[in-house]
Structure formats: structure tokens, C-alpha cells
Write a protein that binds this DNA or RNA. Structure first.
Lengths: 191, 191, 191, 191
DNA sequence: CATGAATGAGCGTTCATTCAT
DNA sequence: GATGAATGAACGCTCATTCAT
């Protein structure tokens, strides 16, 4: 059992959930260290400094999320099916990595992100924008700024998962389907 | 016009715009003081400490926003008109208090908010939920968790205003109407 | 009585004597603060950081020493009189600024000196080298590398003052004259 | 050839050259370990801690230098020949142990030296003082504090070797002889 | 024996807060 | 009241030292 790998993982996980819950600036290295049950100095064996840590984290989960969205993407299906694929990707990804999407959403414009992180995030945006632009061309998605439409989708989705985590709502298939439908109605073209 | 009142106001305004632009943790007291053109010590004449300042600010604008939404609320009009009233309230409020809604949205789950701030924010949510619940009863709003529906509305609205501030989009009436329609479609009941 | 000026001076003096006694790397900011009887943070009101402090110190005393050497320099006198002037300058300077010359000598090649400090020191060296080169031309100073000759003069002089400070030797005029004569014999041309 | 002895030697040599080049405080244990091609922990098998290491090093080379000066000392020769012997000893010692004399000279007053190191260094000084005192008695060396005279000799010699190492000067026999002569003139009695 | 991952004390530095003016 | 110089706790980070392997 490789101890060092598990230590790096502990640090990674603690940093992810603390950054997601409190934000980068309000999360201290001692906090991460104590949450990960390692000495403060140990963090620096695995990450050059706090900014490298947050960028590594960001890139890792942005890439993972991108992969989730791209995998088995139904290129030739209808817009609605493609939307379903994307929405299901968010659901699956959030189930597997509890804080990751919230962390990405709340930190994607932060001052400390490096070029790699920004372009990683842009790649992610472009996938979503590509979908939306294609839908606009086919007149199946309404003619609003893509970023606003993406924000609506993310906003609704993340809020839903906050409620689920808080136990205020149960994550039934019906609920998920309902929110998907709501988001879809927000973006689709109505005659 | 009493000087001290205007000093308090300067501090208030500077704090609001700095918290909105940089976040609570990245905003220092000297920054606020210099932006407000007062000495750093002066801030402590009006606010016990930084957390009291941010909470006062939060409560003030949450209350003001609440008031804006409640004022002239068309109790007896149809759901769609009520929705329009609320959406227009957001527009008006943002025009009058540029950074306030963004500040509220980005700080409403922060670790430093006290009980009063949290309940103030809950009160705001409850107004919106009241509207949504009434709509659900009349089967004109879809049967989803109210908080998720509110998130979608806020999300879309704020994203729109970010784009406008960034100059990526022009704030035409048509655009505002389009986003209002999108948000409405996200929440309204479709047969 | 301007308190702040005296605080800056206390910091300056404490830093000078600690850097001279322990060296830059072994001197901590808390040490300087406690020696100067100020809070650690106070040092940063007057000096941007530790490197700026040491460079300010270096430049200040290098300039002062330069001035001492240049003042009333007997341009038209003989080499021996010029040497006497320089040696007396060292004596006077060290009496007025106990640790300064030792600090300059031990830190003049340090990695943390900035361009200004280095050129300040080069200017000082050039004065001494100018004297030596002139003497070499007149065949009154021996044909050895100027830097080696300067080192001998400084070395003897500083060692003398260490002994005086340690109380191992009394600073009589006779002693000073003797050391001056020894240094002079080390550099002068003998037939 | 026992491995452990060679490891200790590697550590010793690496520590010597790093301390001489960068100074005690700027030299880290990992630096020494990596230069010596051993693990950082291994250093602690041979030396209790960093201060013990530097003291051991200091005492070792101070003793070796002492031995070099004492070996074949021409007790019955004239003062000038004895001086030549000592000066040649410095040359030989520096050729055999490149950084040792510079390390001794730059660290002989350091805060971390223990009593043994200080007395070892005093012993070295006393040998030189013995020579000087004898010369003073015979009125062949001038009547100045011995330590000041020794400083001049060391100062000139080390400055010479710095220039040689820096490539600013070529180490010819003529140069060595010239510096020896300069130092001798600094200490010898002139009528 | 030798290693290097792990630790935490202590560094340089910032900034919320106090208080003499 | 208003100020900003002064403070020191706490930050991000380094490195001497330990100890499980």
C-alpha cells in the first residue's frame, strides 16, 4: 500500500472540499494540512506552493469533467438527446466528485489561475458553447448569449446538488429529470 | 449634512464594490479606507470589525432588495405579471445599486455570515419561494424544488449582468426581455 | 520630538550592529525588532523588506564613508600625506559609526546587494584604487594587485578595531600611528 | 576500504566547500547531502547536528593548518626565514585544501562556534603570535598588537587567493613572492 | 547502516485592530 | 471625532531533524 500516494490524495481531497466550501483565499495551508492529517510542510513535498496546488486541482477536475462530457457524446443524435447526455454527465461527475463542479464554477475566473488552467476551462466552455451554437443554428436553442445560457444550466444544477447534499431534497430520478427539463426549457427555442 | 453620515456612506459604498469585485478575503481594511478616503481607524468608529461590516452590508442590501421586490407587488395579477414584476425588480435594483446583487449572490453562503444575515437572506428566498409556491398551487409553475428554480433565475440574471459589465453584450431591452423569457420558461409549467 | 524618526533610527542601528555581528542570513527580523524595541511589523513601515533594509543600510554607510574619504582630500599633497588622510578617515568614520565599516567589508560581495549598492561600493573602491594607481605610477606604491593592497589595509585596520572594542588594546594615538605605519609599509614601494 | 569512512569524507568535503562558498547560514543540510551524494539522514549518523558538523570541520582544518605551520618550523633560523616558512605553509595548505583557509577566516568569529573551536583557533593564533613576539623581542618585528599584524598577513594572503580563484590575477611565483614581501614589510621592524 | 518522507518550529511578511495624538 | 503609526497573530513557506522502512 503506497503511503505517499495516499497522502497526496488526502491533501488533494482536503484542498478540493475546503476550496469549494470556503474559497481559495479563506482556506489556509494549515487548514488543509490538518484536514488531510499531515504536517503543513508535507503539502510542499507534493505541490510547489498553494497556487500550484489550486491550479493542479483545477486542471485535474476540469479535464476529468471535460472527459465525462465528451465520452460517448451522441454527435449524430438530436439536440435534446445531446442535452440529455451533457446533463447526465454533470450528474455522474458530481456523484463521483462531490465538490469538484462547484469548485470549478466558483473559481474559474480567479486571479491565481495560470494559463493552462484558463485554457483548460476555455476548452470546457467551448464544448458547451459548441453544443449551444449548433442548437442555435438549427433554431432549436434560443438566441441568447451562450454564456448566459450556460450559466443558467450550471446555476440550476449546482443549486440542486447543494440541496441534495444538505438533505433538503431527495435525489430521485424524477427530480433529476425535472431539473433537466427545466434547464432544457430555459435554453430551447419556443415558437 | 452631517459629515459623519457621509463618511459612513463612503465606507459602505467602498466596501460594497470592493467585496463584490475582489471578495471578502481579498479585500483589506486599508483598501476600503483608501477607496473611501478615510483613515483605517475611522472604519472602526462605524463598524466594530470587518465581519460586522460585511454582515451589516449584507443585511442592508438584502433588506433593500427585499423591499424592492415587495414594493407594488401585484398580488392580484397573474403569475406571469408577478414574475415580470420580480424580474424588473432585479433590473431596477441592479441599476440603482450596481454591485449589490452580485455581492449578495457571491457571499450568501460565506463562512463569516452571522445568524441575522442568514435569516435575512432566507427571508428574501422565502418571498421568492412564496411566489413560486403560489404558482405551483395554480399549476402554472413546475413542481420542482423552489430553491433550484430560484437559482436558475438568479444565475441567468447575474450572468447577464456580468456580460454587460464586461462589455461582451449590450444591455438592450430585447436582451433583457429574452433572458426574462428564458428564466420564465425554466420555471413555468408546460403541459 | 519626532517619534517615528527615532523608531526608524533604532531599527537602522539595530540592523547595522546585528548584520555586522552575525551576518545578514543569521539575523532575523524578530531579532532586529526586539533589539530596536519595536514590533516586527513596524520594520515594514520603514523598509519594504529585509533586502531593502540591508541595501539601504549598505548604501547609506558606503556613501557616508565615501564622503569621509573624499572630504578635504589633499589632492596636491604627497602620497604619504594622502595615505594619512585616508587612514584618518577610516579612524574617524569608525569612531562615529562603530559597526559600519565592518558591516561594509563583510557584506560587499553578498548575493542580496542590488545594483545601486554594488555601484556605490565600486565607487568607494575606485577612490582607493585611484590613490593606489597614482602611487604605483609615481613608483611610490608597490606593483601588486590593487585589490590585494586594499585588503591588507582594511584587514589590518578592522582587526585593530575589533581588539579595541574587545578591550584587549587601548586606542592610543601611538597605536593608531603604528598601525598606519604598518599598513603604509605594506603598500609602499621599497627600493 | 570501508564505505562509511568514505561517506563521512564526502560529507566533510561537501560541507567545507559549501560553507566556504555560501557561508554557514545559507548552506542547507539537503544541499550538503546532495553534493556529497548521500541521503540527508546519513549526515546525522556522522554528525549530531549542523552545528556539530561545522565545529568539527572548523577544528579539523584549524588543527591541520596548525600542524602545517608547525611542521619543519625552522626554530633556529632567522626571523625572515621563519616568516617565509609560515607564508609558504599557507600556500601549501591552500593548495592541498582549497577552501579550508577561507572557511576558517570567514567563520572564526561566528556565533555558532563552540568553546573547543574557539580555543583551537586561539591556539593557531598563539603560534603565529609566538613567532611575532619572538620577533618583537629581537626587535625585528614592529611593536604592534600581534593580532593586528596577523590580520594583515591573513588579509593580504586570502585576498590574493580570492583574486586567483576569480581569475583576475595569475598565480605566478613572482606574485606570491610580492605579496609575501608586502606582508613582511607590514610586520617587520624598520629603523 | 542508509535513506528520504514526514514533521513542525521558526522564518519573512501581511493586515485586522488599537490607541496616542 | 478622525487619524495612521504601531502592534502581533497568523499567514505561506523552508529546512534541520527524526524515524519507519
Amino acid at each position: 500500500m503506497p503511503t505517499s500516494t495516499s497522502k497526496r490524495d488526502h491533501i488533494f481531497q482536503s484542498a478540493l472540499s475546503l476550496f469549494a466550501e470556503r474559497g481559495f483565499d479563506a482556506t489556509t495551508i494549515p487548514m488543509i494540512a490538518s484536514d488531510a492529517k499531515v504536517g503543513a510542510g508535507t503539502i510542499y513535498r507534493y505541490f510547489e506552493n498553494k497556487e500550484v496546488l489550486v491550479n493542479t486541482l483545477f486542471q485535474h477536475y476540469a479535464a476529468l469533467f471535460t472527459k465525462t462530457l465528451e465520452e460517448d457524446y451522441p454527435k449524430d443524435a438530436g439536440i435534446r438527446d445531446q442535452f440529455h447526455h451533457l446533463f447526465q454527465g454533470m450528474v455522474r461527475f458530481t456523484n463521483e466528485h462531490e465538490h469538484a463542479l462547484y469548485f470549478i464554477k466558483t473559481h474559474n475566473a480567479a486571479y491565481f489561475l495560470d494559463e493552462t488552467s484558463r485554457s483548460q476551462f476555455n476548452h470546457l466552455l467551448m464544448i458547451l458553447e459548441g453544443f449551444i451554437d449548433e442548437g442555435k443554428e438549427k433554431e432549436q436553442i434560443r438566441g441568447l448569449p451562450s454564456k448566459a445560457l450556460i450559466a443558467i444550466i450550471f446555476g440550476g444544477f449546482l443549486e440542486l446538488f447543494k440541496l441534495i447534499r444538505a438533505g433538503e431534497v431527495e435525489a430521485t430520478d424524477a427530480l433529476l429529470a425535472g431539473v433537466e427539463e427545466s434547464c432544457w426549457d430555459a435554453v430551447r427555442h419556443h415558437e
